[in-house]
Design a protein around this nucleic acid. Sequence first.
DNA 1: GGGTTAAGTGGACTTGTGTCCGTTTATAAT
DNA 2: ATTATAAACGGACACAAGTCCACTTAACCC
Lengths: 223, 223
Amino acid sequence: MKVISVSPESPEPPPPALLVLSAEGERPERADAAANRARILSVAERLFGEKGPHAVTMADIARAAGVGQGTLYRRFPRKPDLCLALMDHQFREFQDATLRELGRMTGARTPRLDQLAWVVERFAAFAEGNLDLLREAQPALADSEAGLPESPPSRWQALTVRGLLQAAIEAGEVGAQTDVVVVADLLLAPLRAESLCFLRHTRAYALPRVIAAMTTLIRSLRV
Amino acid sequence: MKVISVSPESPEPPPPALLVLSAEGERPERADAAANRARILSVAERLFGEKGPHAVTMADIARAAGVGQGTLYRRFPRKPDLCLALMDHQFREFQDATLRELGRMTGARTPRLDQLAWVVERFAAFAEGNLDLLREAQPALADSEAGLPESPPSRWQALTVRGLLQAAIEAGEVGAQTDVVVVADLLLAPLRAESLCFLRHTRAYALPRVIAAMTTLIRSLRV
DNA sequence: GGGTTAAGTGGACTTGTGTCCGTTTATAAT
DNA sequence: ATTATAAACGGACACAAGTCCACTTAACCC
């Protein structure tokens, strides 16, 4: 989508709101707002890259982007929203590539459980590569006490794992009594930002080791 | 310690600092400090019970306990420390009871994997019963970027699961190539506060259903 | 072009966590 | 009892996230 660079502003047509969980039938942002959004994202990306997402405050971003805090918060109501938006582009590519490969594997009659192991490995690698951002993005979901929204990436991952588990059952690779929905979430739990930080930093397990153990667990589901 | 209390408090001899991760060879707290500690804990317990840990601020607690914020923070450097201290007593009892029953099961030749499933179910129930507190206590561990301390309860749970897994391997119930250490943490991942909140609130799975799925996973380890 | 209006804007303000530091006090040695 | 001193104390302060609201302006219509 041609992200605009830091200071100079390109007068392109407003990037169709790819970066935000776009609702359909809404009128597009005003031009100045779109420009601000782009500048904010670009500035945030730079600052996060320089100092790490946690060390950069929303005020820093607003200042560097030359907008007021009110403006920043209008575009991105929470810091996690901003983090999610920054990951969005990268995640889409990741998602596409994953789906493509998965299609290929299915065509090649790769066992579903192998596909599942592969997918989980991919998810782990993605999470690892975006750990700081994910960690900062996390509170977006589980903030209030009651029911809370789930980020699209998280939802998609869960759906994918469910799908593969279900397919594995239908292929007779896994016991039919398995609670697909819940087991999918259990398998993904170690990849949630907080848990992965714990495994990688507190426990200091190397990523391949974590992946190997997850694979063990998955393969052990085979009947 | 003679706690004064908000809700009536028993005038028992001071409970030797059970409530804090006590370092060994250190001189005991000054009497006034110990009294404040007790009062703070008692007040915090009441306020948390009334409004939920998240809705109670450290300032609230300091005020209600009749001490300055500086004093509060001297006793409990972080809010999570206070939460952990509040769970401490309850956790010790839980731990003792668990160990006792585990000993009984071992004596009765209960298969290690069954013990493991039972233990994990217990852990889940405990976590569920202290979710709010755990959630608030969580940041204690994973705050800074680098290596971070792990709470004693968390460590003990991990050690227990590791031990049972290892025993299961030695009993031939589980494949010997299993990475006991990492797999133990993977099995516990869904019980971390953040993950359990996600499962219970966002996904709205009933606790027994979560436990059943975890049990499935554990039993599938059987060779 | 001028008017209307919803969207956008800036920055002061609120709230909560955690820090700092000058003052006070319990404890123990004299 | 007196005094030394380390611990304890309290509350002002720093800092970050997120809210509010009076003011401005782009976009659309006549």
